[in-house]
Nucleic acid binder design. Sequence first.
DNA 1: CGTCCGGTTGAGAAGCCTCAACCACCGTGG
DNA 2: CCACGGTGGTTGAGGCTTCTCAACCGGACG
Lengths: 254, 254
Amino acid sequence: MATNAREPTSPRAGDGADKLLLKLRLRDGIDAEEEQALRDIIRPPERMAARSVVVREGVPLERSALLVQGILGRSKDMRDGQRQISEIHIPGDFADLHSFTLKRLDQDVIALTECWISWVPHSALQDITERLPHLGRMLWLSTNLDGALHRAWTVSLGRRDALARIAHLLCEMQVRLSVVDMADERSYALPLTQSDLAECVGLTSVHVNRVLRELREQGLVTFRSGRVTIHDIDRLRRVAEFSTDYLFLDKRAR
Amino acid sequence: MATNAREPTSPRAGDGADKLLLKLRLRDGIDAEEEQALRDIIRPPERMAARSVVVREGVPLERSALLVQGILGRSKDMRDGQRQISEIHIPGDFADLHSFTLKRLDQDVIALTECWISWVPHSALQDITERLPHLGRMLWLSTNLDGALHRAWTVSLGRRDALARIAHLLCEMQVRLSVVDMADERSYALPLTQSDLAECVGLTSVHVNRVLRELREQGLVTFRSGRVTIHDIDRLRRVAEFSTDYLFLDKRAR
DNA sequence: CGTCCGGTTGAGAAGCCTCAACCACCGTGG
DNA sequence: CCACGGTGGTTGAGGCTTCTCAACCGGACG
């Protein structure tokens, strides 16, 4: 069942769990029983087309989406056709774990690229909160990490200019992707369009284009054909006023 | 013990719990055992001076702050002296419940007015996750509601102009304060300065001043001497593109 | 080979910021 | 009692960042 999907890009069933465990174990120990419980509730990944709506705002939900491959965004459409993305999700992220308690979403989850998603039933999560409270707290932690990202984005949108805002986003993605072995200090794949970036940082794609040129010409970063190449990570972080503190990369009893 | 504080503004010990319970019971039932467990872990409120830092970013924490009276903000200082507030807290809110899993904060919690705070030890919260998993999920829900506010603010900062942004904030506060019986449809107390507002919506206080005049002259809202008077809530909400959906005001099994 | 999507660039407009002055109110101290 | 200083609010003028509109380019794909 798990290995039924035969397309070349199709991920293995355990990939999502592996990356989720990398993310959780960076913050606290997960023992064998907890790991097994987690693996047991993760269904085989399903493919979602690029640009499709994975979870629609407002719909009653009984499962959450663990992203195995691809990039998801949480997105809000405005009356006038503009949209704002409030978080970018990478493999190993639950895109809507908060729906476990909220029971519906306040924003759409959309596939920014082709994605593979493992669904996790809320009933299984409830079971975890009752049988394995520490693992339950680690899942709670996971939604609180999302909250920390949200706050950092709020600060960016409220107080950084366009250059620092984009620089900050590219710094954030570098660290988060590193955690799941998808980036190093020099470069990483980020298969988004400039319009996608614009919807993350609250600018127009035209202005994002100009700012990306500026970042390139200043020898900081290059974003081109879905890849980020960092020329000077120290200067980039200084320009962005970036610190890893809000990403909670330290291991502690939780 | 609980009634020791004698100043006229000093709240009773149970006030914080009462408002927290109003907030939680709006979303799901809390039975007598859960209510008692919650009341048992809430310490008598302590007074914090206006403009003081209640919880400092980065400091290891073993307790969370339940706001009983006053207004708190989550605030990030920038290098250049600017700051951004990412959430406003009202009585009945935990200002840093996320520190239960994160163990420190990514932003300061500051008192925007004189505040009374009840501290709740993390050990007691851990106990709840182990003994009363449903109540634990309700606390998890509470941090997820914060997340929904964060996302709404991100959308505001990214895609609304100054007028709509301030209108949206005033709409949000009206609903949230109503939940804890501190607002009606026409008016509510909001003892903030125009600079505080500016730090919430990512503008300067000068521009906030001009926009408040515009809101007043359009017959939408008046914000004056710490009080918001809503002249036309329907038009105000339309201008703000405000919907209560993201506040999750519905009762459901969670 | 045409079409579409994403990216690039220019020119002018709009929204918000900066700087500065001034006012009203309130608590404090002489 | 009044003078004073501090804080918060108000208004004007000019500047800068970002937006809007528009044109054009290049590559992928049918």
